[in-house]
Design a protein around this nucleic acid. Structure first.
Lengths: 344, 344
DNA sequence: CTGAAAGCGCTTACAG
DNA sequence: CTGAAAGCGCTTACAG
């Protein structure tokens, strides 16, 4: 079951491989008779071109690599979905790889993509770009990373978003606690910084508990925060998953949300609106963000790396029930549920 | 900024490309002095091998293609995550593509993967394998599809799972309605068949409303079902997302779950345990399923297509609150929440 | 209009 | 131990 090559087609159709190549790619003049004979033969032999060989000579793979820290959770999958949609709209494939927060793995993934992709989208919030040993020839777009000088990228304005959320919670609360993301994560750092700058009151280190962006860590943080005296009146979690875990912990302890404590998250992953109470959060349009990363890379590909710039994305406050503010029952219903609210 | 090739290294190190190739791949005898000179030069030039060129001659890409209907929702992303983890554990890359339910797109994706992948994982629940024009040489594993004769695959036992769920709901309910998946979807069809065979009572066509696996369609179905007279005592939704939408509709209408109506889902996507009430569902270990698909393909790759078989996966009933059964408050807590229940 | 030839960047027998 | 050469499956000037 050897795969059939262009040579097989040429032999069967009694022409040169050059002619086969020409008609299959629709370039150059070929006689009508020859053309149809080639087409027939290709069809009969079920010939499919070897893309690897093509791209070796054409110097383009029509594939872009996407390196994510992980594939866990809706945050990454929405990003991936956005990038995939944009890529396929332009006829590109997506080669995915995960680094699991390890510099070595990320660097390995990057190396092994040489020659199979035209460019790279890298999300690596933990790692500065330099140690990644980014290859010279390869256009790269950084996502949410500590952006290197002269590198292109897309970035969420985490600081500004955190500011907005804490100010919103501050309308009704003075004692606002924070569940932060993991140490060394750039996004988490910026969200923490926003919190610190916007909180109405410094309550000491006990009111900032470190999580790792998982629901489990939010749950543990919730247990801790509920034990504090005085209890916080509001909690700003650095992402939605931790907010979800925190809500769960509070529910088990009988702490009522939002009556006893208001909660705000970050990201607006699809899960957020299904939580009870539905989660107030800073919406980042992850699908659009993924698409934007691809578009940036695509521009880079065409301009041959000349046009490096960073797209900033500002998250948007989405008020639902978990902060107990701003919306009467009727309005809230409109805002968080019902068919009209379902995306797509 | 031309990328550096093996020739550049050879020239700089004053050896043949053959020697460079040998030391970089660690095969064949090479003198110590030559070796270190080559290594130094490669490092200095920051040489990264062109994987495309390598795979053309070695006839392996160490990449597998995964074609999914969509990337929307946790169902697909968990599958992808499982496949990715298994693949990278064996040093393989993942090339993803989505077909959006279109035969043409799927066939196009398959074609364009020739020469860039060693094998294919295809999930195409809507489409029989034949029209996909599967290439001869390429090992393929089908997921959850109408499995073609002689093809390898992994399959969820949807019928048996539906049977189990409906029987469980049947413990307390006689009037059981169904929200089905989309027409022509193989999984949906099997789940419907299980429902029809296991329901205690045939209530007529009004009690089976068609959805499309989205929460929005579940929401609409919920509105319909709530208007029925007599109202169903239980609803079996063909997947969790539709169950989520249904719960939402019921909540808005003041229909209490599980007191007025019990609800059961299918899949156990991560969202399920965060719903309120937490969702009783048939657990399909999606990560394991994705991994299993890769393992199957991997076996195929080694055996050269000799060893075709189908792995069956039986879903498992997970009882939470939405069916109002079987668990006291204490037990339920254990089962659906708390740190112990957080995966990983 | 059509073909012979060179070459994309690599690996691997085959000589020496 | 080391190199020259062939070849993986294609495309593309260059001739004719």
């Amino acid at each position: 079951l050897r795969a059939v090559t262009i040579k097989d087609v040429a032999r069967e159709a009694d022409v040169s491989v050059a002619s086969v190549s020409r008609v299959l790619n629709g370039v150059g003049r070929v006689g009508a008779a020859t053309r149809s004979r080639i087409l027939d033969t290709a069809e009969r032999l079920r010939y499919v071109p070897h893309e690897g060989a093509r791209s070796l000579i054409t110097r383009r793979t029509d594939t872009i690599g996407m390196i994510l820290p992980d594939l866990h959770g809706e945050f990454f999958s929405e990003l991936l979905r956005g990038a995939d949609a944009a890529a396929r709209a332009r006829g590109f494939h997506l080669l995915v790889s995960t680094s699991h927060g390890s510099v070595a793995e990320a660097a390995g993934a990057i190396r092994s993509m040489r020659g199979r992709v035209d460019g790279l989208i890298i999300m690596s919030p933990q790692i500065a770009p330099d140690p990644l040993a980014l290859p010279d020839g390869l256009p790269v777009v950084l996502m949410n990373a500590p952006l290197g000088a002269g590198r292109s990228g897309v970035a969420v304005q985490n600081y500004e978003g955190a500011l907005a959320m804490v100010r919103h919670l501050g309308i009704t609360a003075t004692r606002i606690a924070h569940i932060s993301g993991p140490e060394g994560n750039g996004d988490a750092g910026e969200r923490l910084r926003g919190y610190l700058d916007a909180r109405p009151l410094d309550l000491g280190p006990d009111y900032v508990v470190r999580g790792d962006f998982t629901a489990a860590s939010g749950y543990r943080a919730g247990l801790e925060l509920a034990g504090l005296d005085p209890m916080p009146q509001a909690v700003f979690a650095a992402n939605d998953m931790m907010a979800a875990g925190c809500i769960e912990a509070f529910a088990e302890l009988g702490v009522r949300v939002p009556d006893d404590v208001a909660i705000g998250g970050f990201d607006d992953v699809p899960l957020a609106r299904f939580l009870r109470p539905a989660l107030t959060t800073m919406r980042v349009d992850l699908v659009a963000l993924g698409a934007k990363a691809f578009e940036r890379l695509s521009a880079e590909l065409e301009q041959h790396g000349r046009d490096s710039k960073v797209d900033q994305v500002l998250p948007e406050l989405v008020v639902r029930s978990s902060c107990g503010q701003g919306l009467g029952r009727e309005q809230e219903k409109k805002c968080t549920t019902g068919p009209g609210r379902y995306p797509e």
